[in-house]
Nucleic acid binder design. Structure first.
Lengths: 240, 240
DNA sequence: TCAGTCACATTGGTCAGGCCAATGGAAGGT
DNA sequence: ACCTTCCATTGGCCTGACCAATGTGACTGA
């Protein structure tokens, strides 16, 4: 349909193959001349490629080929949200569904080394929680989930989930904060140290170590179930 | 970062909310005046929104707000493929992973009516296969998978999987054709009618009817396993 | 010799104004 | 009532210009 756009894509894809990745490409003026278009047309198409995460432009420096990353997916979901084409619930559920599939894939592929890494992240999480360090706990939790994607080894799913996570990070942060407060309030009064074992993530790792896809999925489902139980325990106050 | 783009998005999102969906929006010239930009700038940003599937422009007619659909996701994967940012195997595996998660979600949500519809599609498939009508068989197969997404009821996952399917449709069509020939060759010589029962999709529906997430996932995994077994039985000839 | 400064060519960002081409509806004819 | 023609509207594309950020190389002073 749009031959100008396709021609630009072909030209850039060729240059990207010849030069390495992250390479600087021709100037807009040179591209316009080579393609027989005006700079305005080239610029419009380059703008399209930029929002798609295929190129990065910097005034004064030049245009570089890049790989679409999570921030692009995040922008996509932000836009769809602004235009009312998706709702938070669907997006969040999609993320959960993908993570459930990821944990099953991980159960197939994980080796001893991977399992050890996962347990290490859980230990960090428990330690941070015991120390009351919410930030460290959050980071360990993130590292745990990130490791699952490394094991599952599928860049496409990882791209989508990362983007969704970014798009939801604000609302997720609020939920996480409330979850922590609820959890703290639920502790036996003055019982001293919080729990020293993790009952949410450990079953996931156990299932992965056993290469049991079904158990891994079930454990992840339970993980999300608990999460929802905590975050939705109190009435939501969604003020803009 | 790009205030012009954001301003345009806000203006369009507002208009899209006031007017209904699929509404015609302001002229490029009017948008330029309203936003205080030149038409060139507005056009470049509109081009970005167009490739993202948020608007559709037609020369002489106008610009309309649209919802991103599968063809947008397809284009995204085509581009990533052209730039060497993804490989076919990862994309296809991502689709399988998502379908595995979809079938689990369907197992949670399916009602009697849904199960009956699924079995109806299987019947169509078997009938078409028995009649040697490859086209009808393909359509019934597509309807079956499509119905799973309807049951799972998650537009985000459906969008991604549909887009991936479009992006892979050529190579998938080739594989499907070979699968059919292999299947035909595997039939007992002159045994008359092909099998009248479906051993691939029926277990999936049975698991869904029983609301058994694990069994549904396992059945879908088996489905893909058989699929791979057939399509990869002969040596691949991948000539460009 | 080296570090800092500054001028300048390069390059993307934006603008103004124009013409072309497709669309769709209004005016007019049958 | 239907079809045709005409034309205002609107997106597609172009030219040429200026602005702003970047980076490099010459220049300067320690």
């Amino acid at each position: 349909m749009d031959s100008n756009f396709d021609a630009l894509v072909d030209a850039l894809a060729q240059e990207a193959r010849v030069l390495g990745p992250d390479a600087r490409i021709m100037t807009e003026r040179a591209l316009a001349e080579r393609l027989g278009n005006s700079r305005a047309t080239v610029r419009e198409n380059l703008g399209s490629l930029e929002v798609l995460g295929m190129v990065r432009r910097t005034q004064g420096a030049g245009t570089y080929v890049t790989k679409p990353d999570a921030s692009f997916v995040r922008q996509l979901f932000d836009l769809m949200s602004k235009f009312g084409h998706v709702d938070h619930a669907s997006v969040e559920r999609a993320r959960e569904m993908m993570e459930i599939s990821v944990v099953q894939e991980a159960a197939d592929r994980a080796g001893h080394h991977d399992v050890a890494a996962l347990r290490g992240h859980i230990d960090d999480m428990v330690r941070a929680t015991a120390a009351g360090d919410a930030q460290a706990g959050h980071e360990a939790d993130y590292a745990f989930h990130k490791r699952l994607f490394t094991i599952a080894d599928n860049p496409v799913i990882e791209l989508f989930v990362d983007g969704i996570s970014l798009a939801l990070q604000d609302v997720l942060a609020k939920k996480r904060a409330r979850a922590l407060s609820v959890e703290a309030a639920a502790l036996p009064e003055g019982s001293g140290s919080p729990r020293r074992t993790d009952t949410i993530h450990t079953p996931i790792v156990d299932a992965i170590e056993a290469h049991d896809r079904s158990a891994a999925a079930a454990a992840m489902v339970e993980h999300f179930s608990l999460w929802r139980q905590i975050t939705e325990s109190s009435t939501m106050t969604d003020e803009p």
